[in-house]
Design a protein around this nucleic acid. Sequence first.
DNA 1: TGGCTATGTAAGTGCGCACTTACATTAAAA
DNA 2: TTTTAATGTAAGTGCGCACTTACATAGCCA
Lengths: 212, 212
Amino acid sequence: MKKTKNTKKQLLEATLTLISEKGYLRATTREIAQKAGVTELTLFRHFGSKERLFEELLNGYTFLPRLKELLPELEGLSYERSLEIIATRFLLTLKERKAMIKIMYSEVTIYPEKIRAIYNRFVDEMRGTMAGFFENMQKRGIMRRNSPEMAARVFLWILISYFRSEEIMRPGSMKKETMEMNVQEIIDIFMHGTLNKRSDLSYTGRTAHERL
Amino acid sequence: MKKTKNTKKQLLEATLTLISEKGYLRATTREIAQKAGVTELTLFRHFGSKERLFEELLNGYTFLPRLKELLPELEGLSYERSLEIIATRFLLTLKERKAMIKIMYSEVTIYPEKIRAIYNRFVDEMRGTMAGFFENMQKRGIMRRNSPEMAARVFLWILISYFRSEEIMRPGSMKKETMEMNVQEIIDIFMHGTLNKRSDLSYTGRTAHERL
DNA sequence: TGGCTATGTAAGTGCGCACTTACATTAAAA
DNA sequence: TTTTAATGTAAGTGCGCACTTACATAGCCA
């Protein structure tokens, strides 16, 4: 063989980048090949068609959320602090996977089943993990008796929307400090809720907003 | 003139539908014209190019959220009930605007400025209204002293993600009853928060989840 | 060394699509 | 009735793109 053995990998990477930037139809095979440093013909020799190239990208992609490994490290921390750490880690994962996330948002109409499958696999896993975490918090009497499933969904929804708002709909990338502040406020709301109750004051004293 | 005077309107409607279903590039001018009941040539005589057709669609679109008109009707209702009603109304608005929302999600990469402008106009207006509502609740001592802005953002984020999850990423459309139940659980979390506090029990007795 | 495999060069094919041109028709306004 | 504005019919143009074919070349292994 000549030169590199990882041609396929580089083609898949170029595909990921270009399709996330310009969408499936606007990302031409010529451009993808060029970005991968090979000829267009090589692309077709490896994947046969543009469609199969895209499918292989989708099939081979894994989000591997490292959330589960994170949970044991939270022992001893407060509920609030735990949520903050989980949220931060989750947002970083989203940021790392930004390219694929953009694809999932913009190409659902075209590849409904496959993209939904990936998306749901990812979200379901996250939700399962979080639901487990919440169940645990309930057993310890730390959390109210909400449905852990729904709590997990709401938790993830907030963060996904926040990510989308900051990273995709608003210009400029999330700054680390802004993010930390926002996460604090978000978690504050998620944890305490928004209703004024006397016990709040005795427990936390002030809201994240007041601390600013 | 011949027949209808509203050719432009019908073309714009067809454009909205088709682009939301298949994306900008896959929605052909031939198909759009056919759906509008006119010839392709008529389309070009009216709009000059496909791009300008799309631009006119974006420029002329208005979300007109009727949220503001809704607020006065909430006088006398509980905080929780008010939030439920607002959430339901907001979700219905999203459902009605589903086509444009799908376009905004899938074509941001291609028309960043214009789509972001529309999106932000919509979201900012909603957020402003909600922030006003929360400020009012704070003045009355009903709500904790969170940042009303952030509370509004979180509130809308949850609902938008919920909408997306049910209407776009999961097969099948939101059933009315399921939606009502989900909204109850969501609002329950948003309002009370997820922390177990003694005053919760004295105030509401049980969570939405326990009521099921 | 010789054969095999991965890649390259170059030229081309066919299709779909946005967009055009020339001419005809119809209904309403004048 | 004549004129005019909006639409239709029909044929076509040119471009970009996915994909192909034929032939050449460079490194690896037996």
